[in-house]
Amino acid sequence: MSSQDQTAPRASLTSAATPGTEAGKPSLARRILSDGFSSWALALPVTLVLAFFLLAPIALIVVVSFWGSTSFSIYPAFIFDNYEYLLGSQVTYSVFLQTLKFAFLTWAITLVLGFTIAYYLTFHIHSLTWQIVLFLLCTIPFWTSNIIRMISWIPFLGRNGIANQSLMNMGVIDQPLEWLLFSEFSVTLAFVHLYTLFMVVPIFNTMMRIDKSLIAAARDAGANGFQILTNVVIPLCKPGMMIGSIFVVTLVMGDFITVRFMSGSQIANMGRLIQNDISLLAYPGAAATSVVLLITVLIMVAVMLRLVDIRKEL
C-alpha cells in the first residue's frame, strides 16, 4: 500500500544525517525505533496466542494420532494402528459420507436462501436505514446461543409438537410424522437455521458494492431481469458466495453437537466419532479421526480459496 510514501521521507532524512552510509534504506533497528509501533511487535501477541492455542494443539493432535492406547491410558509411540483401524472400518466411510451429505445439503440450501435474502435487502429495500434494520434483524440470532436455538425446535418438531398438531388439525395427516424430529431432516433444518446468516452477511456485503449503473447498462442493452441476475449480479457476488460457503461448509463438517442433539444421537458424523472416542478416553483414535477431518476440511477450503482472494475482499 503506502509503505513507500511512509519510508521515503524517513529514508532521505537518514541518508542526510549519515551521508553515504545507508543510501536510501534505513536499517531495521532504526525503522523499529522511528516507527515506534513496529509491525512485528504489534503482531506478536496475536502470533503467540495462535501459536500456543491453535498451531501447537493441532501439531499435538497429529503426533498423538500415532500414539498407542490401552483401555485406561495412552502412551507415546509411532504406530499406524489408529489409522489402520479407522480406515479399515466400513463405519468410517459411511459416517464420512453422511458428513459430506450434511455439508452439501446445508451448503446448497443456505446458499440459495442467503442469496435470496441478500438480493431482497439490496435491490428491493431502497432506504439505507431500513436495509440496516432488516440486516440487523437477520444477524442478531447469530449472537445468541446455538444450543438454545437447537432446543427451541423441540416443541415445534416433536411427536406432539406444533407442526404435527397443526398438520393433523388441518387434516393433512392422520397420525404424527415421525421423521420431523431426531432425523436427517431435523439435523439439516437446524444447520440451515443456525448458519444461513453466514451466507447472508458476505453475499449482502458484496452485493451492496455492485455499481447500480452496471445493472442499468444491462437493462439498456436489452437484458431481462433473469438475464441481469445470471449475467451481472451472480458473477459479481461470487466472492461473497465463496466466503459464505467456506464458513458454512467448515462449520457443518466440524460439527458434532447439532448432529448429536437434533438426531437424538441416532446419526453419526465425523465430529461425533471424535467425541465418542474422547468420551472413551481413546485419545489416539480421536486424534486420528481429527487428522482425517482436518485434512478434508483444509482441502475443501484450499479449493474454495482458489476461487476468491479474501485479502482483496476485506
Binding site: 495462535l50 492455542f53 491453535l54 501447537a56 494443539p57 493441532i58 499435538l60 493432535i61 467456506i246 464458513f247 467448515t250 463438517m253 466440524g254 460439527d255 458434532f256 465430529g271 471424535i274 467425541q275 474422547i278 485419545y283 480421536a286 486424534a287 481429527s290 477431518l293 482436518l294 476440511v297 483444509l298 477450503v301
Partner: peptide, 12 residues
Amino acid sequence: SLVIPSILVSLG
C-alpha cells in the same frame, strides 16, 4: 483459526 473445526481446538 476460523476454519479448523472447534472440536479439534478443544481436543488439542
